[in-house]
Write a protein that binds this DNA or RNA. Structure first.
Length: 469
RNA sequence: GUCCCCAUCGUCUAGCCCGGUCCAGGACACCGGCCUUUCACGCCGGCGACAGGGGUUCGAAUCCCCUUGGGGACGCCA
């Protein structure tokens, strides 16, 4: 009755939320948000053997982390059998579906035969005209047309026609009374008034079957849009062997959800040359028309680059809790109340690819180096370095102003007085303070470390150098 | 095997629908350089693609056909 657009995301709870599923969810969600429509979450748990509550929870967790919210649901298919039953009976009464008692072995033999004859392996419809009475242990199959073809007017791929000879009388309800995916999906989409079915490419062959169910029911067929799949670097369907699949693993690796979403939305969809999108940008600019037709390879490097950009453009309020969370997760000693936190984050923002990266770099601000990197000390702890460090120490003791500018000035005066280039001063100091060969600028480090942390580290380095001789 | 889909730099893509402005643009990666106390950031430059073949046309990345290549589906899984 209304023209509200209704989309849905129907994961099967047989594992975590993976990036492919996340992208499908994202597209459906964005389309609903863009058009002011509704987005439904539905759990397709009709595979009772493999469905688990942990998986359901993992899917919620993933969706929550990504910030993908839904307007209705979650609905569970296993709780909707009474609905399915009504529609199934209608089909049987109308002679559009029938009971079949062929055993799995018999059907397999049919498939084998078809294969041998160079045809698509399928059920041959031998029970179709037997007019079998409803009975336990029998499956219910749909009567599918033997001629003609079924057309999909795909929003993304354009018209697709599948010959009906390729579609067998598939099962709507199993012998144990559980409804199959193809049937449950149609009844759900129908009764939930779904207007747009946006899903992975791997479903194109299911679509004509589903259309046939709508037609047998005399129901209105929704619009379909099949988005190309996400491939691994070897150009096959993304799977476990390609490594990180679960969305939450990306959180552990220090990715921002908005960065993952940005990456995912751009994988297959485009808006001119724009690469960087905030969530708000996506909601405003997304369109089904601009989704490409070819599959895309998941590229960690590009995701990482995008993540760096999102970190760089992010705000203090956004980053601070995530940063703290990451410090915690990595067991890096720190003080969550430290007044320097904002300054540290700001300093690290342009130099961090991930939150993990940022947290690791932040360590130096909280704890003294436990050791000096061999390469770095070999390169920077030279003969004259001992005097340099002593000089810095001496000057630092005498200053009160530890602002970045004052610290820069201090370093420059050391250079001047000792007739050294900045590198000869900054190098040893860097190793003394961080133990590493790289870090932010020494002025910035000194200012953030303050005398109370700098002096002991200087003393330790001086002792280290004196011991070395 | 059968059916369906796809095809622009290594990767993501713009351009394709409505042929000329494209000896094909952007981004990631890579390589140089600048900046610089290190590492990053930033900036500048470079490398790098219309799968192949036929048409149609004055003209094709863009339209048509074939070939090749890739992906997907063929379950009492979803």
């Amino acid at each position: 009755m209304s023209d509200t657009i209704i989309t849905r995301f129907p994961p099967s709870p047989t594992g975590y939320l993976h990036v492919g599923g996340a992208r499908t969810a994202l597209f459906n969600w964005l389309y609903a948000r863009k058009t002011g429509g509704k987005f439904i979450l539905r759990i397709e748990d009709t595979d009772i053997q493999r469905s688990t509550q942990e998986s359901v929870n993992a899917i919620f967790e993933g969706l929550n982390w990504l910030g993908i919210d839904w307007d209705a649901g979650p609905f569970y298919q296993t709780q909707r059998f009474d609905v399915y039953k009504t529609y199934l009976n209608q089909l049987v009464n109308d002679k559009k579906a029938y009971y079949c008692t062929c055993s799995p072995e018999t059907v397999e033999a049919m498939r084998e035969k078809a294969r041998a004859e160079g045809r698509n392996p399928m059920y041959d419809g031998s029970c179709r005209h037997k007019n079998l009475a409803p009975q336990d242990g029998a499956v219910v199959r749909l009567c599918t047309p033997d001629t003609g073809s079924t057309r999909i007017d795909d929003i993304i791929k354009g018209p697709i026609a599948i010959p009906n000879t390729e579609i067998d009388d598939f099962i709507l309800r199993r012998s144990d009374g559980v409804y199959t995916y193809n049937f449950a999906v149609v009844i759900d989409d129908l009764t939930m008034d779904v207007t747009h079915v946006i899903r992975g490419d791997d479903h194109v062959s299911n679509t004509p079957k589903q259309i046939l169910i709508y037609e047998a029911l005399g129901a209105k067929v929704p619009k379909f849009g099949h988005v190309p799949m996400v491939l691994g670097p070897d150009r096959t369907r993304l799977s476990k062997r390609h490594g990180a699949m679960g969305v939450m693993e990306y959180q552990k690796m220090g990715f921002l959800p908005e960065a993952l979403l940005n990456y995912l939305v751009r994988l297959g969809w485009s808006y001119g040359d724009q690469e960087f999108f905030t969530i708000e940008d996506m909601k405003r600019l997304f369109s089904l028309e601009s989704i490409g037709r070819s599959p895309g390879v998941f590229d960690m490097e590009k995701l990482t680059a995008l993540n760096a950009e999102h970190i760089q453009k992010s705000t203090q309020e956004r980053l601070r809790p995530l940063f703290l969370e990451q410090m915690q997760a990595l067991c890096i000693p720190h003080d969550p109340q430290d007044p320097r936190l904002n300054a540290i984050i700001t300093l690290l923002q342009p130099r961090s690819k991930t939150l993990v990266d940022m947290a690791q770099q932040a360590e130096s601000f909280f704890v003294a180096p436990s050791a000096y990197c061999e390469v770095a000390s070999k390169k920077n702890f030279k003969a004259e370095s001992l005097d340099v460090l002593k000089k810095i120490r001496e000057k630092l003791t005498k200053t009160e102003d530890t602002s970045e500018a004052a610290m820069e000035a201090l370093l420059h005066s050391v250079c001047e007085e000792m007739g050294l280039k900045l590198g000869k001063v900054g190098g040893p100091l860097r190793v003394a303070l961080t133990g590493k060969g790289f870090s932010p600028g020494m002025g910035e480090m000194l200012a953030l470390l303050g005398k109370e942390r700098t002096l002991p580290r200087l003393d330790a380095a001086i002792a280290h150098l004196e011991a070395k001789g």
